[in-house]
Every structure is written in structure tokens, then in C-alpha cells.
Amino acid sequence: MPADDIEILDPNHPTKKRALRWKRKTRVLVICSRRVDYRSRHLMKNLLKFLPHAKGDSKFDRKKGLTELNDIAEIKNCTKIMYFESHKLKDVFLYMSDSKLGLSAVFLLHNICTMEELKLTGNCLKSSRAILSFGTEFDERPHLNLFKELFVSIFSTPCGHPKSQPFIDHVFTFSLVDDKVWFRNYQILPEGAGLAEVGPRMVLEPVKVFNGSFSGSVIYKNPLYRTPNTLRRFEKLQTQKKSHNRLVEQLATRTKKKKRAALLNFDPDADFAFEDE
């Protein structure tokens, strides 16, 4: 949590109690592109419930250029941006940007599950603050450390935010599995009873990191990343290869059966000539 996110005693407070000063005025713009699928829309709504410092906006037209998102964020008085972009109604990319520092990262989303789909037992207060939990892997590699700082700046609710509740009752966890970031949301059960998952769920596969907000040069590129079109093309070729091998096996089997029938189908009444001994 940032160092300026602290409690300060305000002597001018009418009740002379400990009051919270809203110092870190971070706001996040949550926006999506046109023709986005229904699951991504519900995921955005779930995130807006848990991020009281986030603001929504109408759908964005990709033809205008991604750099215009910085102007929309400036109009909305936001410094962070979460942009969901849909391709072919199949693939969803998540852009996370810090327009103030000039940094942006692109992730491919997998296994999106909304709260309405999961129907989990966990429950937490709306607009309450969350604890952010990261695996030890995020401190071992530079690009993961960069992702960690970006997640903290976007998902951490500023202390004393007017729309946030003064409670901490859930945890955002970020863990690294198979070079992908797994996001989960858990409720902190009372009396140390453990955790209960609330939802939503998503898996973020890193693609690229730029040194500018939706612009600039690439400072990191995932060497293990393969585009969804490439994977679908490979699966199609594998299916065609299996079909071709199946046809070859069927043709070979038919050929063997014909040769066998030719050897076994002889006339029993045919005259056979035997040489004299």
C-alpha cells in the first residue's frame, strides 16, 4: 500500500476523532470497445462494484485510435485506464495504462467467470477496501515487478475515498501459474474462519509492455505468447491431419481386404492339371 495512504488526526474535526484525509486521489477509467461479448461486460460491472474509485464510460470505437483513451481519461479526471478490447467476438484483450507515468501493458484474458456464473458462497460489502496479495514470483523478475506496481496502482482503493467503505473484508490475490497471472477475489471470514471465494475470476496472459500510454516502444514482449489466430490455425491443421490419416488408414484397409478376397475367391469346380509322377 502506498506510503501516503495513512490515517491523519485532524484537530479541526467536529467530533475530534481520527479522520481520514483523501490524499492519493487515484481514479480508474474502466471502458470497453464495441462488439464486446456479454461475459466481458458483466466482468466490467463486477469490477466496478469492487473498485469505488473507478468510473465507467460508453463503449469506445477502435477506429479512433487507442491514444484517444488518454483524452477521455483526462476529461473524466482519471489517471489509470482499464480498457477491454474484443476481437472477432472471441478474444478479449485487457489494456492497463498509467497515463500519468506513461506506461501500459497488454494482457490476453482466459477463463473469464463472472459472479453471476459462479454463484459462490463468499460475500463482502460493496465499495469496501481490499487487501492485495501477490506471490513471491512477482519480486523475482523485473517485468513481474512492473506488473505488480501496475496492479497495486489500479486495484488498491485510496484510503479515505468518499465512495469507499471504512472496512477491509476481502482480498484480491494475484498468483503466477504457467507464466500467466491468475486473479481471484476472496472474502475474509469473521473470527479467523478462513477465506471464501467471491468472484469474479480471470487469467491474464502477458503480451507486451509499452513505455507510453497506448503508445511508445515495446520494452517487454512475452516470448511464450502465441496469438489466438495462430493457435486456432494450428488446431485446424491438426484436425485436418487426423482426418487425412484416418482416410489413408481406411484406404489401406480396403486395399488389404480386396487383395485378401482375390486370394480366397477361387472356383472349386475348376480343373487342376497334375504332372505325372
Rank of each mutant, 00 (worst) to 15 (best):
D169H: 03
A193Q: 13
H170M: 05
L204I: 04
A193Y: 10
F151D: 00
G122D: 06
L176I: 05
V207L: 02
R141K: 13
T121W: 13
Q187D: 12
G194I: 08
V152E: 15
N229Q: 12
N211S: 13
F214A: 07
M202N: 05
N229I: 12
P142V: 13
S217T: 08
A130L: 07
D139N: 15
H143R: 09
I131H: 07
E197W: 12
S175C: 15
S217Q: 09
L224V: 07
F210Q: 12
R201C: 12
E140D: 13
H143D: 14
F134D: 03
S128N: 11
R226Q: 13
V207M: 03
E205Y: 03
S164N: 03
F183R: 01
F214R: 02
F183G: 04
A196Q: 10
P166T: 06
V171E: 00
L204G: 02
L176Q: 01
G160Y: 01
N145E: 10
G135D: 09
L120G: 00
E197V: 11
L204Q: 01
N185L: 14
F174R: 04
S215F: 03
V171Y: 01
T230N: 10
D179N: 15
N222D: 12
F214C: 08
E137V: 04
F183V: 10
F147G: 05
N222C: 07
V198K: 00
Y225L: 02
G135S: 10
P166E: 09
S213A: 07
L176E: 04
S156K: 12
L132Q: 02
P190G: 06
E149K: 15
M202A: 02
S127M: 13
S127F: 14
P162F: 00
F172K: 02
C124I: 00
L132G: 04
T121M: 14
S175W: 11
L224M: 11
Q187I: 09
L144D: 04
G216T: 02
E205C: 01
S213G: 01
S133R: 13
G199R: 04
L146F: 11
E137K: 03
L189M: 02
V177I: 15
W182F: 07
N145G: 14
G194S: 07
E191G: 09
V177R: 08
S175H: 11
S153R: 08
I154C: 06
P162E: 04
K180P: 00
F183A: 06
D169W: 01
N185F: 15
V177Q: 09
L150H: 09
V181D: 00
C159Q: 12
S175M: 14
K126H: 10
L231W: 06
F138S: 09
P166L: 05
Q187M: 14
V171R: 00
H161E: 12
R201F: 13
F151H: 00
G194K: 07
V218L: 08
I188A: 14
N222E: 07
L125F: 05
F138M: 11
T230Q: 15
V152I: 15
